Structures are given as C-alpha cells and as structure tokens.
Simulated assay, not measured.
Amino acid sequence: MIDGRFEVVGAAAPRAFFEHLTAATLSHGYLFTGPHGVGKKTFAREVGRSLLCVTPKKTLLGWCGHCSGCTHVAAGTHPDFYYAEGQVKIGDRDGSGFHETEEATARDLVRQLSMHSYAGGRRVFIIGDADFTREAANALLKFFEEPPADVLLIVTTAATGRILPTIRSRLVEVTFPLLAEGEVRAVLLARGTDPDEAARTAAIAQGRATRAIGLLEDGEGVARDAVVEWFFAAVDGREADASGWATRPTLEEGLETVKTLTRDWIALGVGEGAPLLAADQRARLAALPGREPAAFARMLASLGDAERIARTNVTPALVADLVRMALAPAPPRTTNGA
C-alpha cells in the first residue's frame, strides 16, 4: 500500500476528518462551506481523485498518479467523475455519460445518478459554488433521501444561506477556514512567484489563495490600489473617482476591501499591536483621525447595507456614492450666534 498524493494547502481539520473515514463510513454526500478562495473545490477534486484511484492506499485519501483511474481523471475523461460549477437549474437537455461541464441541470444529474458505474467502482459528483434553484432542489430530493449505492456527492459553497434547508440537512457539513498567511505564500511560491512578491501578496490576501493569485495575475491588484486610494480620499472628505473599481465585475471585491480597511482602522484605535488584514496600509490607517464608537458602528452598518444593495440592480456608481457618504467625516455642527 502507498501513502498517495493529496495536493491541498491548509485544510488540516477537513483532511483529518476524511483520513479517519473508510469506504464503509463514507457518507453519500458532503457540503463544503467556507469563504471564497480557501481551497474547497480543490479539496473536493482531490477527494474524488483519491476515490477513483485504483491503487491500494493506507487511508481513504491519496492517489498514485499513474493508474487508469488517475490517468482518466487528469485527462478529464473518467466516465465516473462529474464536475460542474454554479447554478443548478431544472433543465431539459439530454445527457449521456459522465462529463466535466460548467453547467449542470437537475434532470441531467438525476439521469446520471440512475446509471451504473462505468468502471465498476464508485461514482463522484462535485458541484462547485453551488446554487440550486428551488425546482432543481426538489427534483434532486429523492437522491438525497434514497441515495444510490457507491455514489458520492460533494457540494461546495461560500454562501450556506443559498443552499435550501431540504438539501443542507441531508449532507454532512465540513467547514474550511481561511488559510494562514504562510499557507497562501506557499501556494504562490509553488506557482513560481518571486519570494518577496509572494510575501507581500500573501500579507494582503486575507487568507484566500485565489485572491492572492488574482492580485498577481488578473488585474485585481490594480483594482485594489484604486479602492485604497478612493477609501482614503473618502475618509478625508475629498471627492474621488470610483470608476476604477465600482464596476459590476469588481464591485463585490471592492466593497470587501473597503470593509477590510475600515475594520483595520477601527482595530488600530484599540491598540497599535492589533493584527491587520491590510497590513501594507498600517501607516496610512494609523494616521487617520479617530471617530466615536457610535460613528464607527453606523459606518459598518452602512457598509453592510451597501453590500446588500449591490446585489440588486442598483448601479455600482450609486453604491460607491452611498459608501462614500458613510465614510465621509461628519459636517461641523453650526450654532446660532447672538
């Protein structure tokens, strides 16, 4: 027997949980929850790859990389491995065989679930960043209540409130925490990032590997810089152009950056040694004037309101303006002179 490879960073508790399972104690379904970018989908795929590896191993986790199961999973051609992401609708298309796709429908899943294993072993279904419509959830209830033999379903989400209770109650929930800064740095180093750049990016990635990668490769670093400059202008009461970050694709991440800077600003008011999520902005945040606790509370409440409004059809520019007003210093009080 071999130890097998299992290529994930962090996730010590989820890994220990699965290492103590056996084929007999493995549930039919799991719900992986936790923030975006902490490795839930990677972990799910590694579990699936482990189960489809035909080489005997010491624990449930691990894969050899050279057997027929590993070869087919790596090539995306394993007939018993199904992976999809995003919203699951009721659907009406005809599917045949297992496949990898960016779209899944409940009818397709039900059809696939009714089949037998092509390879004679276990079948693995992974729905990443899942969002089941109510109709799709109802169509899949029979599976959750009477799961076929030798089927494993893993659903991942960063928003557990979007998973209907009828589905959530029938899955074993496994929570994934934020990554440590050193773990994020290790991910970047493994990708060939310069050590100094990896250290700097890991310090501001807020425990999320995908955020760190985005900061380096997808232009998110430029967008973050725009948010940072806009934030300090807004706090100072100056006009600032939000067009560099207040767009539909970047609004959510921009608001998260504003919240992080605001929380760090508050944390510095508690003590100079307070840990910061935006450590690269410590000096500028420390130079900001303090505000009354009630004012900070109102500010955080307004930022939460802005996040909720951002999920509607309100324009990003209007959301940014609402945030600017929440951050701006209160106007000086005037008194009636005699």
Rank of each mutant, 00 (worst) to 15 (best):
M1F: 08
I2M: 08
P14Q: 12
F18T: 06
E19Q: 14
E19A: 06
H20L: 14
L26I: 06
L26P: 06
G29M: 03
L31C: 08
T33G: 01
T33L: 10
P35W: 10
G37Y: 01
K41N: 11
F43A: 01
V47M: 04
G48Y: 00
L51P: 00
K57W: 01
K58T: 07
L60P: 00
G65K: 05
H66F: 13
C67W: 01
G69A: 12
A75V: 12
H78F: 02
P79A: 09
P79Q: 08
G86S: 12
G95T: 07
F98G: 10
E100I: 09
T105Y: 09
A106E: 01
R107D: 10
D108H: 13
D108Q: 12
S114G: 12
H116D: 15
Y118N: 14
A119P: 10
R122F: 00
R123T: 02
I127T: 04
D131Q: 03
E135N: 13
F143Q: 01
E145Y: 05
P147E: 07
T160E: 15
G161I: 12
R162M: 12
P165N: 09
T166A: 02
S169F: 06
E173H: 10
E173R: 15
E173Q: 11
V174R: 03
G182C: 02
G182L: 07
E183H: 04
R185Y: 01
A186F: 08
L189V: 14
R191I: 01
P195Y: 05
E197S: 14
A198T: 00
A199K: 07
R200V: 05
R200L: 14
A202F: 08
A203H: 06
I204Q: 13
Q206I: 15
T210M: 07
L215E: 08
E217A: 14
D218L: 14
R224M: 03
D225N: 15
D225L: 02
V228W: 09
F231V: 08
A233K: 02
D236N: 09
G237W: 00
G237K: 05
D241C: 02
A242N: 01
A242F: 00
S243M: 03
W245C: 07
A246I: 07
L251C: 09
E252C: 02
E253G: 11
G254M: 02
G254K: 01
E256S: 13
K259N: 08
T260A: 09
T262N: 06
R263Q: 10
D264S: 11
D264R: 14
W265E: 02
W265Y: 06
G271H: 08
D280Y: 11
Q281G: 11
R284P: 13
L285E: 02
A295Y: 06
L300I: 13
L300W: 05
A306C: 15
E307Q: 08
T315M: 09
T315F: 04
A317H: 07
V319W: 00
A320V: 05
D321G: 10
L322T: 04
L327V: 03
A328S: 13
A328H: 04
N336V: 11
